[in-house]
Design a binder for these strands. Structure first.
Lengths: 141, 141
DNA sequence: GGCATATCTTAGAATTATTCTAATTCTTAC
DNA sequence: GTAAGAATTAGAATAATTCTAAGATATGCC
């Protein structure tokens, strides 16, 4: 799937600074947990994984770190129906496939023309800053 | 936009029966409220509108009715990020445009080929029963 | 029609994910 | 080294939804 490489701590600080935010040990660990296992974890799951490295971190901080990473465009939020928000460090334009049987989520790469084509369906005057595509179904076992 | 016509109470009963569900006065009112104003209301908003006709209905029943209508495929659920679930009686395949400025939601008709084309992006073995497309941005005033 | 059974409705309690609050700690700039 | 602004923390608060248990309604069968 060709994952986005993890950026260096210095680059992370830069990205955060670009949105007026500071880097912290907590944010570094949260980021590296996300990049380390790209299975679209929930905040709770991130919390559990981060605690392995940093047992004193709090859930509120995990939420705060995730929000910071979303704000500086290093991570995207993904929602399925009313389930808990999931976090995705894949910045390439892509769709999501949500397997109803297992609950797993897969990234689906999209040819770049497709998003353009979709935007062209909008009536004139509608300007979409973001297009989200979600498939729901079953993946072959 | 060519709205789906409201079906008759008898047809509603039939549709419900098809999913092993009964028709009730509450379900009829909830359905007609949804078809009457297709602005993608939340359960709370539906509750408020239904109370005009049926002041004794409870919120739990509104949730129950909405779920029944979703189950028998007369209504679709729509979610934006973590906001409350919204309900849409438009059964034609369509996308949603979510206006970030006003919070309003608009249906966007899609040419039928487009959904097929999207499904073709899936790796073999992935079978999508549903494709959801959401635009986020601003509509011209 | 009358009874048994299953479904539906209701009010309120419970749950879940998330955000808020206030106190403390950490950074950064001067 | 101190002041000011950010970030972290634990726990309380919130919002949407689901659950629970009771009563009401409807349906099928004799």
């Amino acid at each position: 799937m060709e994952p986005t490489a993890q950026i260096s701590p210095a680059a992370l600080s830069q990205k955060l600074a670009g949105s007026g935010l500071r880097n912290t040990p907590q944010r570094e660990v949260v980021y590296s947990v996300l990049v380390g296992k790209r299975d679209h974890p929930t905040a709770d799951e991130v919390f559990a994984r981060v605690k392995a490295d940093m047992p004193t971190i709090s859930l509120a901080t995990v939420y705060n770190c995730l929000e910071a990473l979303v704000q500086c465009n290093l991570v995207r939020q993904v929602n399925f129906e009313r389930g808990p928000t999931r976090y995705c460090p894949n910045l390439h334009p892509h769709a999501h496939f949500h397997d109803e049987a297992t609950g797993s989520t897969y990234d689906i790469d999209l040819p770049p023309g497709l998003l353009e084509q979709l935007r062209n369906q909008l009536p004139s005057g509608y300007r979409a800053s973001d297009v989200e595509i979600t498939f729901r179904g079953r993946a072959a076992s």
